[in-house]
Every structure is written in C-alpha cells, then in structure tokens.
Design a protein around this nucleic acid. Structure first.
Ligand SMILES: [Mn+2]
Ligand SMILES: [Mn+2]
Ligand SMILES: [Zn+2]
Ligand SMILES: [Zn+2]
Lengths: 143, 143
DNA sequence: CTCGCGAATAGGAACGATTACTGATCACCG
DNA sequence: CGGTGATCAGTAATCGTTCCTATTCGCGAG
C-alpha cells in the first residue's frame, strides 16, 4: 500500500513541521487515483471509500496543508468549486463550459512568461496560474 | 452625465438584446471610477452612493450581463470574491497575499501563449486568464 | 397620452462551498 | 504507561452568490 510515498513529500512534511497523517496520505492517494482535477468533494468521496469516518472538513484541511507545502496545486474557475492537482509545475488547465470537466493542455508551458512578469512587477511573485475555458470536442459536437 | 458611453458598448447591448438600463450604466461607471479590480460588493457600495435603492442582486446580474457581452472581465483568486475589470484584453493581474489588493502587471502580455494553446488542444477555447499571487512592496516591507 | 407586455429590479430567502468551533482521539516524547 | 500538542469527526456558522416573487420600468401599439 502506501509504502511508496515519495521521499520528497516526506521531506516537505518534515521540514514544514506538519504531521504526515493517514488522512493526509489518503487525500494524496485520492488525487493520484482520480485522473482529472477533482474538487474537495470529489476527493472526500474517494477517501471515504477506504475510510468512511473521514470528515469533509478534514479533507479541506489536508488539501490546504498539502498546497501550503507545495505538494499539490489549486486553481479557480467560475461556476466550479476549487480544483486540485498533483501537477505543481506551471501549466495550463482547461475547463469545459459544457460538462465541467477539467483537463490539462499538454505540451504548452508558460514559456518565459514567469520571468517576464517577475521582471515587470515590484511584487514578490509567489504563484502564477493560467486557467482556460472552452468546449471539449464532445460538448462541441453535442451542440 | 452618462452622455459619454462608448459607441461600442451601446452596440454590444443592441446586438445582444439586453437593455442598457440605468443600473447597468451605473455599474459600468463604478468600474471606471474604481481604479483597481473591485468585487461585486465594492461595485455595489459605489453604485449605492448615487442610487441607494439598488440591490446587490442587481449588481451581480449587471456584472454577469456585462461579462457575457464582453464589456468587462472577471478573474478568480483563492481567498477573495470574484474581481471585475474594464480591461478585457488578455493580461496579467496580481493579488497581494498581504493586503488583498489586485492590480495589473503592465507591459506583460500573454505573448503567443493563446496561439500555442489553441494549437495544442482539441477544445474550442473561449477564454484564457492569468492570475498571479504575491506580496506588494508595502506588505513585503511590513514583513 | 394611455394601455399592455415583457424585461429588469428590489428585497429577501435560499443555496453551495468553505471555514470555524468543540470535544474526542491520535502521535509522539519522555 | 501518562502527558501534551496536533489533528480529527461532527456539526454549526459564514460568506459569496444565486434564486424567487411581487413590483416597477421601458417602450411600442393603438
Ligand atoms: Mn493541471
Ligand atoms: Mn486587470
Ligand atoms: Zn465538455
Ligand atoms: Zn499588499
């Protein structure tokens, strides 16, 4: 089972001072299982399959901790709860306005965008995200 | 007063079939007055100064219509209500994690990002937004 | 100028996502 | 084994936003 938990993740927990609890491991596992970009509720339902006693609030807290220590990412669209992602590299995620599915746009990075923005603003930039909206092929066909 | 309402905006209303009501004009005005990227609540408070009878729901409905016809834009961050913007060109907005202020990063466009993403996905792309988080100089100094 | 009608509004209730609270449990240290 | 602080389950509360309904508005037909 959870023997294979990346060294890097354990290290991040250790350094942050947070405990690597079974619930937090379960949330990570759920994010791995679900191919897409699940919401907190999605993660909650997955985690509950193996441990029916987990509380939704615990999932929110776990997601928050995991994001804080840089193990997962979160993005925000209109008309959708927050979506979470194991991919913490800068990348593009697109949400279908028809069916609501969120998926990744592979092969397209931010390029030099982050460098350019850091050079152009006096802010200390901590995070940059690109969110895209559109219609997936299926929904486009459906009309 | 509202004599100077861009031809383009009137035209968009006409084509969409929506009515250009006094409340919708007031919401546009409020967005013009407020330099930054106000929330619906911010807009509501501004509009109420001139017409205390407006309802918050009306402001939400107006913002929704204005976004739909392409006159304003909206972006979503964590820990903040939706922020609205008269700038509908693709551009970068940054939110300070300290004080919550949202401002624009001038001089940095998306470059060829939109072209590349359209080429790389089978989706029909309708909208792409970049949201950035960081610390403004004041908050960085404060600590 | 009235009347009629659909669109828009004010006001307030309802909703969904997220957070806050609280007593019980857990992980870890000595 | 106890003690101690972090975490958790369960639930209440909050917040942004949407929904609902009676009333008003804008406007064209007569
Ligand atoms: Mn992703
Ligand atoms: Mn902007
Ligand atoms: Zn779809
Ligand atoms: Zn600041």
């Amino acid at each position: 089972m959870g023997v294979t938990l990346e060294r890097d993740i354990r290290e991040r927990f250790r350094r942050s001072g947070y405990t690597l609890t079974s619930q937090r491991k379960a949330v990570l596992e759920a994010l791995g299982e679900s191919r897409g970009h699940p919401s907190a509720e999605d993660v909650y339902l997955l985690v509950k399959k193996k441990n029916p006693r987990v509380a939704l609030g615990t999932v929110y807290q776990a997601l928050s901790v995991l994001e804080e220590i840089g193990v997962i990412g979160a993005k925000h669209w209109s008309e959708s709860p927050t979506r979470y992602d194991l991919n913490v590299e800068p990348h593009l995620d697109i949400r279908c306005l028809g069916c609501g599915a969120v998926s990744e746009i592979p092969g397209v990075g931010l390029g030099d965008l982050e460098d350019r923005l850091r050079a152009a603003t006096p802010y200390e930039v901590t995070h940059a995200a690109v969110v895209v909206e559109g219609l997936c092929p299926a929904c486009r066909a459906a009309g």
